Simulated scan of single mutants.
Amino acid sequence: MSSLMPHLDRVSRTFWRATGRRVDLAGEHAWLDAPVHDGAVIGDAWLTSAATRWGGEARDDVEDAGLLPDLGVLDGPGFRADALHPHVRDFYEHTSRWRMEVWTQWAAAFQPGGELVSRLFGRRVQQLALPTRPLDVAYGMDSRVAVITDDTGAQRAAGWIRSLRSTGEYVYSGCYMSRELPGADRASVHVTFPLEAGNVQVFLRPTALPDGSLRLDSPQGDFGQDGAYVVVTGPQRNHAARAPIHERFHVYVDRWGVLRTDHELRMWSATAVRLHYKLTRIT
C-alpha cells in the first residue's frame, strides 16, 4: 500500500492541473504566491524555507506571538478591529497565550470520506488531518505559533502548528497573514497549508458583528474572490483552481465570559463537519 501513495499524490496533482487554470505567480496572480514544500511529509518542515524566501527567519521564541500582529490591517468597509471584543482581538494578536479544546461532529454522509482522506493523505503527510472521531480530540489540541520574519525583522507571516495532545500527530500546519485580493475593498485573512509542489489556500473575509464577535467566511464566488484554492506548482507552469470547500468561523465570548469558536466546513452547499473550540487564556 505504501508504494501506491506517491502515485496517488501525483494523480491528485494531475487532477487539479486539469481542472484548474494556468497562473502567473510572479505577476498577475501574485496574490496566490504562498509557501509550498519540497517533500512528501509536511509537519512544520516548511517554516524554514518560507522564511528564507522572504529573507528572514522562523522564530519560536517570540513571546505572545499572534497570527496577525495587528488586526487593524483588516480594517475597511464592514470591518473595524476596534469593534471586536478584547478577548477576540487578543486571541488573533497573541495566539500563543491561548490553549484550545476542540470537539468535532461529522455529517453521516461525509464521515467515511473524511476518514479515508485522513488515513490515505492527512496523517501520512502530516497536514490537513481533520479528526474524524470525537475521541481523537478527547485530550485536546496543542497549539504553537512560529513568527516568520522578513529581511527587516518584522513579522511577515505566522506559522500556526496544531497537533493532537494525545498522540503528537499534526492536524494543521498553516501560514497566516493578511492579503488583499484583486479589486477588493479591504484585506482578507489569508491561510496557506503547504503541500508537496503546491498548497491549499483559503481567503477569509472578516466581519465584525454587533456583539463584538468575529465572523470569517470563505464563500462561493468567482476566481479571484474569497474562497478556497488549490495551487499546483511546477518547473515551468503553475496551475490553480477554486475548490468547492466553504468555511465559516464565528469567534465569540459566551455569556460566562469564555472565548469560543464555531467552525463549519461545507462541501458545495452541504455541511460536512462542524468543529467547536473552547479557548482558554494561559495565565
Rank of each mutant, 00 (worst) to 15 (best):
L74H: 09
P182E: 03
Q201W: 05
D82I: 07
R165N: 11
F203S: 02
V117R: 02
P194D: 12
L135R: 13
P77T: 15
V147P: 00
L67A: 11
L128F: 08
W98G: 06
A26K: 13
S178C: 12
L47G: 04
H85I: 00
A228F: 13
E196G: 07
P244E: 11
D60M: 09
D136M: 13
A208F: 01
D142R: 12
A208E: 03
V11H: 10
P35R: 12
Q126F: 01
G114N: 07
N238P: 11
V73F: 00
M267D: 06
G140E: 04
L120C: 11
T167G: 11
P77W: 03
P134V: 08
Y229P: 00
D254W: 14
G55E: 04
P131I: 01
C175G: 08
P235D: 15
A18Y: 07
F203T: 01
S178E: 14
S178I: 00
A51H: 09
W160R: 01
D38K: 02
A228E: 05
H7L: 15
L32D: 11
L32T: 07
F110D: 08
T167C: 02
V36A: 12
T149C: 05
A51D: 04
L214C: 08
A26Y: 09
V145L: 01
S269L: 14
P235I: 13
M100Y: 00
P6W: 07
A184L: 08
T152F: 09
G72W: 02
R156Y: 10
C175E: 03
L209E: 15
E101L: 12
G198Y: 09
Y252N: 00
F223V: 07
H246Q: 03
E180P: 03
G20S: 11
R237M: 14
L47F: 10
L74W: 02
L164T: 09
S96F: 05
T14P: 00
W106P: 01
R260T: 04
A65V: 01
G72C: 02
Y92P: 05
G140R: 01
T132F: 05
P35W: 06
A138K: 10
A240P: 03
A30L: 10
R17L: 07
A187E: 09
R255G: 11
Y172G: 04
S173Y: 06
D82Q: 14
G140P: 03
